[in-house]
Design a protein around this nucleic acid. Structure first.
Lengths: 208, 208, 208, 208
DNA sequence: TATGAATGAGCTTTCATTCAT
DNA sequence: AATGAATGAAAGCTCATTCAT
């Protein structure tokens, strides 16, 4: 499997890419079991055996998607510099997630779902560390601020980061449901809610 | 013709109950599509047609489960009295959820999953209001405290309740994954984390 | 199984009668395999096991219906007196069938279907002679008229009776389809068509 | 890559054809509901999913069969030239049907059954016109002869054609039952009976 | 007589996957 | 690198029938 340096895809890689994209969207919206290979290839405009040629099986295709997305977002999160007030850090961290969600809600959704679905998705040990990465990045930043005395001692960094990510997760999910699936009672403006979450948590953890 | 005190039919309702219980557990852990009627009846120790006799179809069985669980937890949440400091209210609210989770994690999981799974589960318009209920109960309490001046004016009650519920949701899910599915990196002590969440949010929203 | 002399039915026989009636209607319209025991008992307002109590099985219920109907119509046909011009006889014979069809199209339909459906219905050797009876009655009348010189020698009575019954059968079926099932192109006035059939066949077989 | 002269796909269309043939035979003999997909594929020597690959569903397979057969026979009937004495026309018309019946009784049976079975078969509006076609062809010929004065004015062409087709239908059905299903009392020689029917009807409708 | 509850067998249909080309 | 055709296994569901009362 030849490694390519450029961003362009020859006809061959186009097929692979089309499958990948279509798979992410469908796995995200419908889940692993409710998504069929036919759905994926129809949307991608390719034939069924191509999935097996490029990815080996449905499961491997799924793993590829999840890994790739978790890897990408971890990278983005890591770019946020820790050497700044935790208040600002938090906001930038949240913004990174919001931007990705805005660009392709499915990417975020797939990750959310994967976490919130104990057994629905196939679980693979080599995904473990990837799944925990984003939360770890945030935890490290809060820990760092706590060592600086910026954050109260009694605050447990992992719980704090869980609070932030859990809140965002729910907000984005409800937003998605409201906008794309059904008119549930809660209309969520992600921008505004994100801001509120940041305010609440910041004040909740700051020292003075 | 044995007479029973509980109002249930001698054997009839037992079968129904067994199916229900087994369905909640499996739907919660595996999701709707990955759970088969055969799985459910095998675990319940009954035969397939019984599902159709008592519930009509897989979908109706699922709806029954979700409705019932959302209804039950809403009732519990509503019992928490609003006429007390928001700090205490929050703690009691969180405790109610934790207790249910402790008793039957699957019940909570199913509700969590149902919310976090845009299209995986079948969606039914008559579930809408039930799904939104728990969050509404919490929102009303925060709104009430805000009108009392206990909570800062700039705090938006819906966002605050989303923060609480989202955080708890993620905490419980990670706990479940860690304990029941796979040894993911984050070992979560729900008691402790709940306490932290309550602390952070309380401080984050209180007036002074 | 007590034999009853009167036409009244006690509550017991009511159930049996209700099942029978409902069965005839449904078997006639939907056929044997497309009619379920549930359909029958629902329409009859009784419970499923009653069918087995009174008739033993679905098949036996069906046999009862077919036998009974063929027997009844044979009796009616036999009442038409042979000692009259074949032209008049034919008309009376046709009229008997039309009257029954008018009163309960399903009775006639069931017989028609049973004949025209080689394997759809279960076949039972003891039904054989009953099925052939109506045609035999007509055949005998024509044979009688032929011996009298009223009908041409070259006419084969069985073929002639087949012509009459086949024509009537098709007419009634198309009438039924048109009126009860779907607006097929051929609107059939049974009275008028019967008259035509009688005219054509009479002239077709008469001597001079 | 073997090239075939008949335009059919090497193996592909063979499978399709085998399913079609087997379906016609079984639907004709047993009816729609008593025929299972398993029966069809077993007889055809193919696997179950092939039915869905080529026809989409049991119902669509059935529709294909009925449509195709009605279409074929209509075409044959239309080939009989109207510009000849109605006596000869009738004979040729009858012969066309007899030939097809001789070659594959099931084809004719399926059409007969479809007409004589009000609700047993699924009914589709787009089959309506096809079903009425053969009778229309015959009706037109008789109408034509009537305008020429060959047929009496008081004869209604539609009733006359109903007489012919109904008679033939019954004759063929009884023949089929006698020969293929059970030894019913009426042994029918289709050739002879057809001849009789033609004689009776011809004389029945002719002018002088 | 009558019933609510229960069942084994079998139905149509779909799925992930592979083969021959 | 790509495809049309094919398949074994299993899904959701229904049916005629029976059991316990």
């Amino acid at each position: 499997m030849e490694v390519r340096m450029d961003g362009l895809n020859p006809s061959g890689e186009d097929v692979r890419e089309a499958i990948f994209k279509s798979a992410v969207e469908l796995f995200a919206r419908r889940g692993y079991y409710a998504t069929t290979i036919r759905d994926i290839v129809d949307r991608a405009g390719v034939t069924q055996p191509m999935v097996y040629y490029y990815f080996g099986s449905k499961e491997e295709l799924f793993v590829s998607c999840v890994k790739e997305l978790f890897y990408r977002i971890s990278c983005e999160y890591k770019k946020v510099p820790m050497e700044q007030p935790i208040e600002k850090y938090l906001w930038e961290f949240i913004t990174v997630g919001n931007d990705i969600y805005a660009k392709s809600p499915e990417s975020i959704l797939l990750m959310i779902n994967y976490i919130h679905y104990p057994e629905e998705y196939p679980r693979f040990s080599d995904i473990k560390e990837l799944v925990a990465k984003p939360m770890e990045v945030l935890k490290n930043a809060i820990e760092y601020a706590r060592q600086n005395g910026e954050v109260r001692q009694e605050i447990n960094p992992i719980s704090a980061s869980m609070t932030v990510l859990g809140a965002l997760t729910l907000a984005r999910t409800l937003h998605y449901i409201h906008n794309f699936i059904m008119d549930i009672d809660l209309d969520v403006d992600t921008e505004f809610v994100s801001n509120q979450i940041q305010k609440i948590v910041t004040r909740g953890i700051l020292s003075n």
